[in-house]
Amino acid sequence: MIRSKHLRFSASLAATLGFASLVSLPARAADKVTISQAFQSMLYLPFYVAMDGGFFAGEGVEVTKETAGAPAVALSAVISKSAQYSIHGPEWTAIAASKGAPVNVVANVVNGAAVWIATAPDVTFNDVKDLKGQKIVTGLMPTTSTSLFLKLLKENGLKPEDVEMTQVQLGSEPGPLLAGQAKIAVMYEPGLDQVVAKGMKVVLGFPERYGPYAFSSVSARKDVDPAITQKVVTGMQKAIRFMHAEPEKTIAIAKKQFPNLDPAVVEAAVKRMMREKVYPDSVDISAEALKTGMETQVALGNLSALPDYATFVRRDFIEKSLAAN
């Protein structure tokens, strides 16, 4: 009896000590990273979903979001190591890499040429040649919307001087169009659906015209911590998967991120970009999408040659995130 009590006491003590040792172990601290975005943009919704939906946190990463105000500034933060990752067009990363910067891209964010042409209701538009002689509002260069518009003109036998371009600050394109100062505008979201809500019409969508297009991506230094980067890329992948599975919850996150916009405009913009495949199906960046996106920059003289896909796109991070999801 004494032995039995002793055994029960020993077992109880061991269990208690074991439990105490477990609860006394500190939880593993989350890896802290800074991601510098070029702008607060509806295009970057996969990033915001990864943050607000808890997908970064679920991978053990605590993200601080910084807004640089320009793509080059966001990438400079990565090069100088004041941020670990940046989000903007991959052309900025390719240009920097061509000049010797140790940077490449690790994940997809936007996979469609997210630019549209909107006109006043009374404008007749059958094809691009109808733009000749027209006054057209575009974003202030350098910006992809205007770069793509110039490419579109060239592909259709027109020159920049064949149209009257008025370049304005990004985001302010709706103003001149709605005020009647011009009847045509080249724009991003949410400006597009802001003018559509006021009766303007969409006459051309670049996402449909160009198909898969590496428009925005996550960039990093080549010497970035690989274990943490894998967590960031996997978090982005899970967020993108969530966006397609839960569109209404995705729209709710977008409304939270853009509280000063009309909720109806936010919803219309998100649905349009989902429908037209602006938001990617995954973090993968195909060779075709990169080539299409970079050819625009080569044509404009911003790049002398296309980046080498094998070294520019970190497929190791991408493939592991796809395998885990």
Rank of each mutant, 00 (worst) to 15 (best):
D225N: 15
K198E: 13
Q257E: 15
G211S: 07
Y188R: 14
A227Y: 03
V218K: 04
A197S: 12
E208H: 07
A182Q: 12
S216F: 14
E189M: 03
F206C: 04
V233D: 05
A197D: 10
R221V: 01
E208A: 13
K231C: 06
A185T: 07
D225Q: 05
A227M: 04
A185R: 00
I184Y: 06
A252D: 11
Q237A: 05
E246V: 01
Q257F: 06
S216N: 15
Y210R: 09
Q194G: 07
L192C: 05
S172A: 08
E208M: 02
E189G: 07
G171F: 11
V218H: 05
V186W: 12
M187T: 04
K183D: 13
G191L: 05
A197L: 02
T229I: 07
P190E: 09
V224N: 03
A179H: 02
K201V: 15
K222G: 14
D193R: 04
I228G: 02
P190H: 11
R209W: 09
F215Y: 15
G171I: 12
K255F: 14
V195I: 04
M200V: 10
R241Y: 00
H244I: 04
K222I: 03
I184Q: 03
A182C: 10
P174E: 07
A182F: 13
K256R: 15
K183R: 11
T234I: 01
V203F: 09
V202N: 06
R209A: 13
D223H: 06
I253L: 06
A254D: 10
Q194T: 15
M243K: 02
Q230M: 00
R209N: 04
S216G: 13
L192N: 08
K256H: 13
L204Q: 11
K256M: 11
A185F: 02
M200R: 14
P247S: 07
E189I: 00
F242T: 01
A220E: 06
E173K: 09
F242P: 01
K201T: 14
H244W: 15
L192D: 08
P207D: 11
Y188H: 13
A179C: 01
S172N: 10
A245G: 02
G235W: 04
L204N: 11
L192H: 11
A182E: 11
L177Y: 14
Y213I: 08
F242K: 05
S219C: 09
